[in-house]
Design a protein around this nucleic acid. Sequence first.
DNA 1: TTTCAACACGAAAACGTTGTAGTAGTAGTA
DNA 2: TACTACTACTACAACGTTTTCGTGTTGAAA
Lengths: 340, 340
Amino acid sequence: MKRKLTLKQIARELDVSISTVSKALRDSHEISEDTRQKIKAFAKLYNYKPNNIALSLKNRKSKTIGVIIPEIVHHFFTTVISGIEQVANEQGYHVIICMSNNSFDKEVINMELLANGSIDGFIISVAKETQQKKDYHHLTEVINQGMPLVMFDRVIEEINCDKVIIDDVIGAKKAVQRLIDLGCKNIAIISTVDYISVGKLRTQGYIQALNENNIAIDENLILKVEDFEKSEEEIKVFLADKDIDGLFAVNEHFAIYAIKAFTERGLKIPEDVSVIGFTNGELSKLSNPGLTTVSQHGAEMGAQAASLLIKKLESTQDHDDAFQTIIIETGLVERNSTKC
Amino acid sequence: MKRKLTLKQIARELDVSISTVSKALRDSHEISEDTRQKIKAFAKLYNYKPNNIALSLKNRKSKTIGVIIPEIVHHFFTTVISGIEQVANEQGYHVIICMSNNSFDKEVINMELLANGSIDGFIISVAKETQQKKDYHHLTEVINQGMPLVMFDRVIEEINCDKVIIDDVIGAKKAVQRLIDLGCKNIAIISTVDYISVGKLRTQGYIQALNENNIAIDENLILKVEDFEKSEEEIKVFLADKDIDGLFAVNEHFAIYAIKAFTERGLKIPEDVSVIGFTNGELSKLSNPGLTTVSQHGAEMGAQAASLLIKKLESTQDHDDAFQTIIIETGLVERNSTKC
DNA sequence: TTTCAACACGAAAACGTTGTAGTAGTAGTA
DNA sequence: TACTACTACTACAACGTTTTCGTGTTGAAA
């Protein structure tokens, strides 16, 4: 198998020194026009490309950002990645992605893999399991090594670093307020167990909205889904006997399962029940009826996260440890699952 | 910012040579039990981790596989990645992912980034734009450099390399045959323009199924979607005046747009029209009614691709250029969009 | 006493770069 | 002639590893 062309080979071939080749290719004025042209022509002909690994080793940086996401299924993460790539590429950085699949172990392994030289900094949304376990040693370790880290979406408060989040509370509140404005009297919520930060916060928003409108909280109308895998069944059972006219779900899946459950009971959306989900993804767009959702502006989040990270990477001040938390505004995309 | 601990620092600290440290950490018998323990304890205490970049440079391999996918939205790709990771991790390889976002340029840039040392081999599903442009220089270049490459799903016939595909023709044929067996008389297909290989092949399957059942091909029942972005509208218009009782769509999106269009016309699924999609993803599961689809066994594909690649990577024979094409069987997952 | 193996360690090269410092050779100046 | 200045290069160190090949010190056998 042919090895890649190196400076050394070019040097030998053209009977000059390695330094000369390197300099010629970087257009150094130290090298005569003649030699420069000759070397450049040769390099181009044989398609010379510098070895990134060697460069990384030499420069002690890779100009690469590592992104760790828990699951790729959510369209939301795709938009975040797009945002990250946009900004990163503009600034001459590359992006590589690893999936943790919501597994703590995988998150740790992937971070260790990348942290040992491959990348200059992390952008991460932590795995469910990590939030649950509350074991953050891999995160603190990376930070202690002096590698910048930016968290987005699923962040961990205890960790001191830059963060980009949406205001889950306000986002949820907006959604529930909309349901109230539409005249809904009995509004239920389908959320997640509390160790998932976003679930917890969105539930808070739900409660605040009700409180501010002097509507009593009915614990029976709050479902905290335990197991994502079995959520469809859980939701069906939960909704089976509920007499509600409004529903707020903390993600797309739950909202769609709910619509399914309602439809099967013969209820009409939005005539009988208005439903609002969270995360404006593919599913919401394609669902039937189209799902009204809180939109998270993923691209914006990704862009901000990348900006923060790169700023840290390029700052020469070693102890610029003023960490920021950027809050991205949410929107409300109205479709046909809410009456107008 | 603290630098990572290196062998050199350990050596200086413990007043031994770098070689000694390296050997001690790798449990060489050349080093006395005493020193070995001392060094290992120190390394553990200060959490020494070898620098991957240096290792890659030295070994001229990174034990990392690069995966390039066109879009992450499709649940299908997620399952493929899982399959790849499964096999790769078992064999001590890591996986990094880059998205081309279906852009030719991004595909090229990402490949060049990874090819220059970061990875040992590629697993790729090419971008739409690449298939359209028929510009494969980045692929051939990588191959010429001796870097193994495995294509999956969207493959390019002209390129000589290992491939993992499903039999799109047979998969489509199965689906259409099912519609015929269900008693459908007028079966339409929503496909893509022919430069997308899978679209072309699935259309062939459709035609074969009809032929084998002595049903005449009606060109009016064949839609080849040009622009993904505008597909919803295109499909709506196409279906507006069609009197059909069966529909086969070459992906989930098209199937769901079709169902939406039918529903808006007041037609019932599956009573009036049976619909089958391709790719058994999230959308099919969550759509209402659940969508009957051809399943592609993504994890299996990923696993096979990774196996093929690793086999090539570990084979010492330089000219083991017998390339394989593995065909993964498709299944049919029946849900409620087809009557039973 | 000499010779030799075993032991425990160190020096150095290599992977592919880049940048600094050094050095021939030439031309110009006093 | 002798000095300087410039041109056009080359040598070398460094990034962090691993590994091969020394090498000095023992202790034991001859």
